[in-house]
């Protein structure tokens, strides 16, 4: 923690740790339960990842003390998370190509009308 943690300070956190532990377990049960329900399309993935992200943030914030950390750590982590997001989004968008979109190849208006505007 690096801060001047008096012993009382730490002991006051102990209950929080236990509460967070219980919350995590509850949300694990929820994750499993909702995975058997079909939300249609990609929604299951979105809901599942949302729950997982919530759980992960609890671990980060409380167990890893990121709720009160030094600015330098935040700077490093923000940079890392931005890069990780770049990695995800660019990898996902690598699958997209506007040329393959429906209606892209065929012009929406007849060619003659289109040239008439010039």
């Amino acid at each position: 923690m690096g801060h001047d943690n008096s012993h009382d300070d730490v002991s006051s956190h102990v209950k929080t740790y236990l509460k967070i532990g219980v919350t995590l377990i509850v949300f694990t049960v929820i994750t499993v339960a909702i995975s058997f329900i079909d939300f249609g399309g990609n929604n299951n993935m979105i809901v599942g990842m949302a729950v997982a992200t919530f759980k992960a943030s609890l671990v980060c914030l409380i167990f890893m003390h990121l709720n009160h950390e030094r600015p330098l750590i935040y700077k490093v982590l923000v940079f890392t998370v931005v890069l990780a997001i770049v990695l995800f989004t660019l990898f996902i968008s690598a699958h997209g190509d506007p040329l393959k979109d429906e209606g892209f190849e065929a012009p929406a208006v007849p060619v003659k009308t289109a040239t008439a505007h010039h």
Partner: peptide, 14 residues
């Protein structure tokens, strides 16, 4: 990074 990959048939948007 993907300017090394123009010839891979990656999408035009990318």
């Amino acid at each position: 990074w993907a300017h090394h990959m123009y010839l891979t048939g990656m999408g035009t948007m990318m």
